[in-house]
């Protein structure tokens, strides 16, 4: 423990903290952005605009027909204000289509929510219905957002793997230097009957504690950065009338960061001790 509080031990823990803070901070940002995107409708949708004079159609309009489409199309129809008949008829299909009033800027408009796979065929079908003026599939932006999110996650995983390897390397080197510093003590201990396990133990503790201390530094860095970013995010969100803020990692997320940092520190110590202690034999 005393070794950890030496300047060199703290410096190593800080280096580990900076390395861990990048993926940890990236994860926190991604989760916050995902929460923001979750407030908007991420599901692929079709905006369906009816031709003029299609109100009170007696069930023959596009909305009514769309409402009666089979559930296997996995489309959900929301009747916009504008076609009371479609709304009325749709109520009979609520189990399969979830038909309800939805907000729409236009009177004669529907918003159809579908799955990604059925979206485009459904849009093509709807466009052929009588009384439909225009069909717009709003899927591209949703796909792009989803792809960006997947790309961000993949990038974070790769970054975490790379920096995790860096953490192991930092600990490996710190323990190597520590072993060299204590070479005389190790040699004497071996001479007078210390087992390998006894000699290794303090180095394992040092690796574990250094990694965990790096994890604590990382959480502190992420918290500080998010707090700084939230000053600007708050003023931006307030201008939209939103209470949105970038969120810190959850308790379990912070626990995972600490456990991973400690575990990788232990691994670095294990590799270093296995590699270097055998070289020290009394003579």
């Amino acid at each position: 423990m005393q070794r950890l509080w030496r300047p060199s031990g703290l410096a190593s823990a800080l280096v580990i903290g900076i390395a861990v803070s990048l993926p940890a901070g990236g994860y926190a940002l991604l989760e916050s952005l995902r929460a923001l995107a979750g407030r908007a409708t991420l599901e692929p949708q079709i905006s369906l605009f009816l031709a003029d004079g299609c109100k009170a159609c007696g069930g023959r309009c596009a909305g009514s027909r769309a409402a009666r489409r089979p559930a296997r199309e996995q489309g959900a129809l929301r009747a916009a204000r504008g076609c009371p008949e479609a709304t009325r008829r749709g109520r009979g299909h609520e189990r399969s289509h979830r038909l309800s009033r939805a907000q729409s800027p236009a009177d004669d408009a529907f918003v159809v929510t579908a799955s990604e796979k059925t979206l485009e065929p459904l849009a093509a079908d709807l466009a052929k219905l009588p009384g439909v003026a225009h069909v717009q599939a709003d899927s591209v932006w949703a796909r792009r957002l989803g792809a960006l999110e997947r790309l961000g996650r993949l990038g974070l995983w790769l970054l975490a793997a790379l920096l995790g390897a860096g953490l192991v390397a930092v600990t490996f080197n710190t323990i190597r230097l520590q072993i060299l510093t204590q070479r005389a003590e190790i040699e004497v201990s071996k001479l007078i009957g210390a087992t390998d396990a006894f000699i290794r133990r303090p180095f394992y503790y040092l690796g574990l504690l250094q990694g965990a201390a790096g994890g604590v530094f990382a959480l502190a860095i992420v918290a500080g950065l998010l707090a700084a970013l939230n000053i600007e995010v708050r003023s931006l969100a307030d201008s939209y009338g939103s209470s949105y803020r970038l969120a810190f990692l959850s308790a379990s997320g912070a626990g995972v960061v600490l456990a991973l940092a400690g575990g990788l520190g232990w691994l670095g110590a294990h590799l270093s001790v296995s590699r270097h202690l055998r070289d020290i034999e009394p003579h």
Binding site: A184, E185, V188, K190, L191, I192, G193, A194, D196
Partner: peptide
């Protein structure tokens, strides 16, 4: 793995003492 236990039963004194 058995060598440390052998050494615990032997008191070793060296010319260069090997003190810490």
């Amino acid at each position: 793995g058995a060598i440390p236990y052998l050494r615990r039963n032997i008191g070793l004194v060296f010319q260069d003492q090997k003190l810490l």
